[in-house]
Simulated scan of single mutants.
Amino acid sequence: MLNIISANLNGIRSATAKGFLDWLPAQDADFVCMQELKAQAPDMTAAMLNPEGYYGYFHYAEKKGYSGVGIYARHQPLQVIQGLGVPEIDAEGRYIELVYDGLSVVSVYLPSGSSGEHRQAAKFAFMDHFYRHLADLAQRGRKVVICGDWNIAHREIDLKNWKGNLKNSGFLPEERAWMSAVLDELRWVDVYRRLHPETTGEAYTWWSNRGQAWAKNVGWRIDYHVATPCIAEHARTAAIYREARFSDHAPLTIAYDWALQAT
């Protein structure tokens, strides 16, 4: 089995203090895709850079304490790709891809538009560039798994209070239509939904820190594995870990009945 975890850490230093790295060894993960590191290279400890049994790869944001993505991998890749080749996007540390023989694993962190119109505009700009990148990846015919916080709840069953969020970033009609185009037109697969087509409350991966969202399970499903069909068809199980809280997001683990041919 190929076990891949996606986890928005809302700060790798904070998540580490809450036991994230202590939790990892028992997960038997081949890849751990992380988002929102909120750290730069000088902030990282040796354990954060390379937990036992893993190689760590990172794309930090230029702004301190902001964004950033990374991947822990059991095997060294043939190539590491940082960024989408768009300076204003890459300055925020939102994309990293590890390339292997027959497989690519990506950690991505889409912008949130909730802080104002300027950030929503940045989110739409990212989506435009990313859509073209997704189209290019899909045409290559490779096995690709893209893990991350997409900051979009696709369907009404993907968040608790959908009626009250129709005009809010993360559930805007334009965002949902874009997600539909990724899945329907480009033929990418929402792997969790492939395994659990109609699951509601148990599918949530993020809860606001406001009010009693966690206690009342007023959540959103915004963390995904989105994969090309040739690897998505091998997905067997999906699990969202809620027993401990390392972040305002919960780690999403999916197991694929496929073996990585490491070099």
Rank of each mutant, 00 (worst) to 15 (best):
A203M: 01
Y204A: 06
Y204E: 13
Y204M: 12
T205R: 05
T205Y: 08
W206K: 06
W207C: 12
W207P: 13
W207K: 12
R210K: 08
R210P: 06
G211S: 09
Q212L: 14
A213K: 12
A213S: 15
A213E: 06
W214G: 04
A215Q: 15
K216F: 12
N217L: 03
N217W: 10
N217I: 13
N217F: 13
V218W: 05
V218P: 09
G219R: 08
G219C: 12
W220M: 02
W220Q: 07
R221N: 00
I222M: 12
D223C: 13
D223H: 11
Y224N: 02
Y224H: 03
A227V: 02
A227C: 11
A227F: 01
T228V: 01
P229W: 00
P229H: 02
C230I: 15
I231M: 03
I231K: 00
A232I: 02
H234M: 07
H234I: 01
H234W: 03
H234N: 07
H234E: 12
A235G: 11
A235R: 02
T237L: 01
T237C: 00
A238T: 09
A238E: 07
A239Y: 01
I240W: 03
I240N: 06
I240F: 08
Y241F: 12
A244P: 03
F246M: 05
F246A: 12
S247L: 08
S247F: 03
S247I: 05
D248Q: 11
A250D: 03
A250K: 03
A250H: 01
P251R: 04
P251M: 14
L252R: 08
L252E: 10
L252I: 15
L252M: 14
T253Q: 15
T253M: 14
T253C: 14
A255T: 07
A255V: 07
A255P: 02
A255L: 03
A255F: 00
A255R: 07
A255D: 08
Y256C: 08
Y256G: 10
Y256K: 04
Y256I: 06
D257S: 04
A259R: 04
A259C: 00
L260H: 06
L260A: 10
Q261I: 13
A262I: 02
A262Y: 10
A262H: 15
